[in-house]
Each structure stands twice: as C-alpha cells, then as structure tokens.
Simulated assay, not measured.
Amino acid sequence: MEKPVLEQKMTRYHVFPGITLCFSTYVGDKCILPHEVHDGVMHINHCRQGRIGWKMKDDMTFYLGPGDLLLHMMDCCARSEMSFPYGYYQGVSIEVDLYCLTENPPQILKEAGINGDQLYEKFFSNQGRPVAMAASDKIEHIFSELYDLPTTVRVPYFKLKVQELLLFLSIMEISKNVEIDRHLSAQTEIIREIHARITGQLNRRFTIDELAREYLINTSTLKSVFKAVYGMPIASYMKHYRVNQGAKLLRETGDSIAVIAGKVGYENQSKFTKAFKDIYKVLPTEYRKQF
C-alpha cells in the first residue's frame, strides 16, 4: 500500500529578480502539492538521488532518475501528482520568470543576448508541453557543483551556476537522443499495480507474458513503461529488490541464510548468495558480520 510523503524538506534561495532556486527532499511514495499559476514562469528540475514521476496536465507522466532534467511551464504542474518509486527523492528546482528575464536579465545573460522569449520559443512552442532530458556529462557538470556548498559562498555560486545553466540551455540542440519519453498516466498506474503485485509475492516468479495477460497490457509496453517508472528492466529490478529485502533480513533477524533465501524468492541458498554478491560485492555472511 502506498504511503503519503512522511518527510518533506524544501530550502529556497532568491538568486536574481524573478529567479529562485529550491532544494527538495521527499521520503514517501506520493505527494500532491497544488499551487497557484503565475503566467510565464518556467520550472527546471534536476534529480540528484532517488526517482520521481510527475503526473501533469494532459494526462502525461514524466519520470526522472539521477541526473535527468525536466523543463515545464508552471501551469503544467499546478495540480500535479508526484510519485517516488524508490520511496525517496532529492533534487533541485529553478523557477524562472521569463517576463522578468526578458526585461531585467543578469549581466552575463544580457551580454549573450539571452532572454525569456527565446527560451520559451525554443522549449515550449509545441503547445507548451514539458521537455525531459536524459542525464549527460554536461548536465552533471552544471548541477553537481550546486550541492554541499559552504554557506559563505552558496548564493554567489548559485548566481554563477544559474547563468551557466541558462547559457547551456540556450545553445543546446534538442533531439530525440536527449529527450526522455512521456507516458500516459493510465499506463503508469497499471505498472504501479504490477509492481505492488510482484513485490508483494516474492515467493512467486511472474513472467512478462503472464503479467501482460492479467493486466491487459502489451508486453513491449509493459517492459518499456516499467523501465521508465522504476529505472531498470523488470528482471533486473526484481533481482535488486529481492537482494535488498534479503539484506534487510540479514540485518534485522537471526534467520539462517537458507531461510532468508526462501523468503525473498530464491529456491536455494547458493543462488541467493550469488545474486547477493553480484549486487553488494560481499557474501551474505560477511555482510551480516558488518551489522
């Protein structure tokens, strides 16, 4: 059963007139944060850790993993639902008033001839739809330096990095190679139901065909949307999930490794041990000793 957000932390910084930077942390499964719509305001969202899904207007959902970027106008998310497939999320969002950027740009952007009208035309001329971009070295270079800064240089550094980001966006080429697919929210809801089913019955090994028939979804759609929502192919995800549950039992119970293997869906201890070492790089016995 999904849990609402249990922990939420947001820290805002006013960087320039009309430009705000906000660090966010959520712990839980889902969250709804309705807000007023201010015309001409663009949001830029960067995922640092965890995973987030945005159900926006027009019944479309976007999922971001570490390093991914999402640009959207404020009206797209005024009544949106956010979900957190891993149970947590940490990231940063930058709010840009495009009217203010045009009228009163920071000096470096003014010298480069960048304004809000140009950014809107570039990214939202297609009916104002959001644009999601996959992680890249260039995106990582900009955002990695925003986190964990000393207090004394935080705001001046933010001013530099926000201008660098807007410069980067103004010259980047948008192509199918960098965009992340959007998905119908109805499809993602089915995938979340499938996820609850397969993680709730670890003693069973479901096949893709079996799940597709039961939930009336095409097999290729099931595989592609599951990967979009949870960040891995279904088989890889379940391997990690089973092993992580096994690690929790190793830490919190005195059960034998053979018993734990059975509880998380492995038919024998040796297969569990091999999978565990693949992921944790140590044997279950060594892992247990650490705790």
Results as ranks from 00 to 15, higher is better:
residue 5 V to A: 14
residue 19 I to N: 01
residue 21 L to Y: 09
residue 22 C to G: 14
residue 23 F to E: 12
residue 32 I to E: 15
residue 32 I to G: 10
residue 44 I to Y: 00
residue 44 I to H: 02
residue 46 H to L: 12
residue 48 R to W: 01
residue 48 R to E: 08
residue 49 Q to Y: 02
residue 55 K to E: 15
residue 57 K to A: 15
residue 61 T to P: 12
residue 64 L to P: 13
residue 65 G to C: 13
residue 68 D to K: 04
residue 71 L to R: 09
residue 77 C to T: 01
residue 81 E to W: 05
residue 85 P to W: 01
residue 93 S to G: 00
residue 95 E to W: 00
residue 98 L to W: 12
residue 112 A to L: 05
residue 116 G to C: 04
residue 117 D to A: 15
residue 119 L to A: 12
residue 124 F to A: 14
residue 124 F to G: 04
residue 126 N to Y: 10
residue 130 P to V: 10
residue 134 A to I: 14
residue 136 S to G: 15
residue 139 I to P: 07
residue 146 L to P: 06
residue 148 D to V: 08
residue 151 T to D: 14
residue 156 P to E: 11
residue 162 V to S: 06
residue 167 L to P: 03
residue 173 E to V: 00
residue 188 T to N: 03
residue 191 I to L: 13
residue 191 I to T: 02
residue 194 I to C: 06
residue 195 H to M: 13
residue 195 H to E: 11
residue 202 L to W: 02
residue 208 I to E: 06
residue 211 L to G: 09
residue 216 L to F: 00
residue 217 I to R: 01
residue 218 N to S: 09
residue 219 T to H: 02
residue 225 V to R: 01
residue 227 K to N: 11
residue 230 Y to D: 03
residue 233 P to S: 13
residue 237 Y to I: 03
residue 239 K to D: 05
residue 240 H to L: 00
residue 242 R to L: 05
residue 242 R to P: 00
residue 243 V to A: 14
residue 246 G to A: 13
residue 256 S to L: 09
residue 257 I to R: 09
residue 258 A to C: 04
residue 261 A to G: 13
residue 262 G to S: 11
residue 264 V to T: 02
residue 270 S to T: 02
residue 272 F to Y: 12
residue 278 D to Y: 09
residue 282 V to A: 06
residue 288 R to T: 01
residue 288 R to G: 04
residue 290 Q to G: 14
